[in-house]
């Protein structure tokens, strides 16, 4: 079988799995239910039902995580190159390292560890990461973290700057993702990683704007390798947010940012809107491959869409448990 058709089986299977996505009609019914129990009852009609047998109303996070974990494990079994699934899972490893480091900092200042925030979705068992960091055997850490983690611990001792620590870990994450995407030699995967870097850069720009950080600090928080040049992002930082949308119109990010309700002057509301738009932007980049029946990019596309689905389910369930307004929740839902 030719190299180009190797993904036929995997992509076809994922297409069939797509028919089980929790799409708009189900989400609508969940939104319209009276309370959390009602929403969970609707969710029980979907593929999530298999994880709901022993889960009470308050355990919806575990239900959502179990579904995502099952999909990742299942996909790992049948894709021709498991590196693609691993590429998708690596950010969870970095998340776990952040949780372990923050727990170590909390413990040092008399607090408790937060192991409940660890996720089993990464490529490395979180127990192994804990052992490596707590025993200071950093050589056991994957993806170049062996060099970054000791630096972060030293930085914490010196300055206690959590933002800087997060920046260093994220920097290593994107460096790893870029290098793995380049090795895969699939243009769509490289482009998708670049879109994720763009999204993170814009997200950082928005957060730092909220803190009124100076431009020198902002520069260090922007990661290389995105579609949008760092200079272009820096040039809009000092401008009002409404101008950002106009300035980014001619980039790949333009169409999704253009849909934001820029009339809203509340920066918090804008940032929430922007989060959704950035996720939709990443979706749009990988969506270009949906009509190619043999494209390996469809593996990442499916996993990303599944993550957006779980995000939507989580938004609705959290909203229902807090009694949030339906229209507000509807506005937060991602495109699946």
């Amino acid at each position: 079988m030719a190299q180009s058709e190797r993904y036929g089986y995997a992509v076809s299977r994922l297409r069939a799995m797509e028919s089980r996505f929790v799409e708009a009609p189900i989400l609508q019914r969940m939104l319209e239910s009276e309370d959390l129990s009602g929403a969970l009852k609707v969710l029980g009609e979907t593929s999530y039902a298999q994880w709901m047998a022993d889960g009470g109303d308050g355990r919806f996070d575990q239900i959502v995580e179990a579904e995502l974990r099952f999909v990742l494990q299942e996909t790992h079994r049948f894709v021709p190159d498991v590196e693609l699934v691993d590429l998708y899972r690596i950010p969870y490893d970095f998340h776990n390292v952040k949780v372990i480091l923050k727990s170590a900092f909390r413990k040092a200042s008399g607090g408790s560890r937060r192991w409940e925030l660890l996720t089993p979705l990464g490529t490395v068992d979180s127990g192994d990461l804990i052992t490596a960091i707590e025993s200071e055997d950093y050589r056991m850490l994957p993806f170049g973290l062996g060099g970054v983690v000791p630096d972060c611990l030293a930085l914490w001792e010196q300055s206690g700057d959590l933002l800087e620590i997060e920046r260093r870990i994220d920097g290593q994450l994107f460096k790893t993702l870029r290098s793995l995407a380049a090795k895969s030699s699939h243009a769509g995967i490289v482009s998708w990683i670049a879109a994720r870097i763009d999204a993170e850069n814009v997200r950082n720009l928005g957060r730092l704007k909220r803190f009124n950080s100076d431009i020198a600090r902002v520069t260090s928080f922007l990661h290389k390798g995105g579609h949008i040049a760092i200079d272009q992002l820096l040039s809009i930082y000092s401008e009002p947010f409404e101008f950002w949308i106009r300035a980014l119109t001619f980039t790949d990010l333009g169409p999704t940012l253009g849909m934001l309700s820029s009339k809203d002057s509340d920066l918090e509301a804008i940032l929430v809107d922007m989060e959704r738009a950035l996720d939709d932007y990443i979706t749009s980049v990988i969506h270009r491959y949906r009509y190619d029946p043999f494209a390996p990019e469809n593996i990442l596309r499916y996993l990303w869409m599944k993550e957006m689905e779980t995000k939507n389910v989580r938004i609705v369930l959290v909203g229902k448990s807090n009694g949030a307004d339906r229209n507000l929740l509807r506005g937060l839902l991602r495109h699946v």
């Binding site: 079988m1 036929g8 089986y9 076809s12 299977r13 297409r15 069939a16 028919s19 029946p293």
Partner: peptide, 14 residues
């Protein structure tokens, strides 16, 4: 063969 492997993928799920 090409159509068959895609068919097998779909039938695994359905």
């Amino acid at each position: 063969g090409i159509a068959g492997q895609c068919g097998a993928g779909v039938m695994t799920e359905d």
